[in-house]
Write a protein that binds this DNA or RNA. Structure first.
Lengths: 221, 221
DNA sequence: TGCAAGCTGACAGAACCCTGACAGCCCGCG
DNA sequence: CGCGGGCTGTCAGGGTTCTGTCAGCTTGCA
């Protein structure tokens, strides 16, 4: 587990590092706002602990920029005592939790653990096969890291194929899933849908097993 | 393997029990929502089959409560035919798979197996005879580890021979299985099919017992 | 040797799937 | 309210792959 601790008070930063490492995390610290923003934007952390008062760039601004840029890692914000407005702003900016200073290290570690656990559960909402990733919560699809616009129906199709990534899914089953058989659609509706999707995705994503059905390539080699 | 089948229709419940036990599972049934929730929350099952319409507590609510409580066992949801919104909700609530009612018991058993296998971390349902392996999920064939392209009909033929690996299968039976006897085919269709397959597979895979039928070499001989 | 069962290659129709075009529908916007 | 635009189902027109049939051939057996 990799943690970034952003804190410009050197003594607190050192204490954080000590406590979190004792708890089994790999810890990096950073005391400058701009550097922190850059690190969080480019590196992969399982958790970020973020103080709000920082040189060169304010903590809240950093957080907002991360979130705007789809950086989803859990962020625990450290706020000054009594400044509860900061907390509201923090939540708005996309913080997952906050802790008023001063705090006891045990509490911080406990919250850190809880956040990581929670984000692990949340991660199951987004799954990928091959170069394709979809996030069930945000109803978003990305291919090789690039976000890709899909319609609701397209998403449901991909979603179903993803759920059954380890097998070839027959068209009847897909039709059943997409429409429910109360309304009968021409089988061609599915083919058209697949064609449109393939045009977006390019080749090598949705495969056809002639006579059986469709599947996601790279599904369970 | 221990399975909990939650279903309030007694006849279906009995069928479920019969089919799953025939497949080698240990089955407990439950017809009440609240009881089901309690069982799933306290007992350890390898799989839960969950009907959505239940007395006292709805299936989706049960599932959500389990998941909220970190109960991770695979859950197969039975939904009413055509009510596909239920399925989407089911997935959101944490179902691993769903099956629209009415369903064929064989399909349910197959999915049950797949789910248990997946949760056990293993990948695919493949079986082999001699040097030939086929994967019923991915509809793929491999010979001596090398993947081999087959058509749908060829696959079904191999599949049937593999299922009956321990005996010689008469051509009439194969014809019946492949085509259903409503449409009559020349017997030669089967011979042509076998010939094509043998050309792909090479010698020593499909054997002939003149006057009796075909078999997979290495099957029981 | 003769017969029946099984094998094979060629081929054309069938099945399957893909694609582009189009039209109806819905929804937001002016 | 009309308009435009995005989403989707339908249709028609292919292209490609399968596969049943046919005719002739080989093999096994009496």
């Amino acid at each position: 587990m990799r943690v970034l601790a952003v804190e410009d008070d050197e003594r607190i930063a050192a204490d954080l590092k000590t406590a979190l490492e004792a708890a089994g995390f790999r810890v990096e610290t950073c005391s400058d706002g701009l550097d922190a923003w850059f690190l969080g934007d480019t590196e992969e952390y399982d958790l970020v602990i973020l103080d709000l008062g920082l040189p060169r760039m304010d903590g809240l601004s950093i957080l907002k920029k991360w979130r705007a840029n789809d950086r989803e890692m859990p962020v625990l914000v450290l706020t000054a005592r009594g400044a509860w407005t900061e907390r509201v702003e923090g939540i708005d900016a996309g913080a997952d939790d906050y802790l008023p200073k001063p705090f006891r290290m045990e509490e911080l570690v406990a919250r850190a653990r809880a956040l990581i656990r929670r984000s692990a559960g949340r991660a199951s909402a987004s799954q990928s096969v091959g170069e394709l990733t979809l996030d069930a919560n945000r109803m978003s699809v990305s291919l090789r890291g690039m976000p890709l616009a899909t319609t609701a129906l397209e998403f449901r199709l991909l979603s179903y194929l993803m759920l059954h990534r380890d097998r070839v899914v027959p068209p009847t089953e897909l039709l059943e899933h997409l429409y429910g058989d109360d309304e009968s659609r021409e089988a061609n509706a599915l083919e058209a849908l697949i064609a449109r999707l393939r045009r977006k995705l390019g080749p090598g994503i949705i495969g056809t097993r002639r006579g059986f059905g469709y599947f996601l390539e790279g599904g369970a080699a």
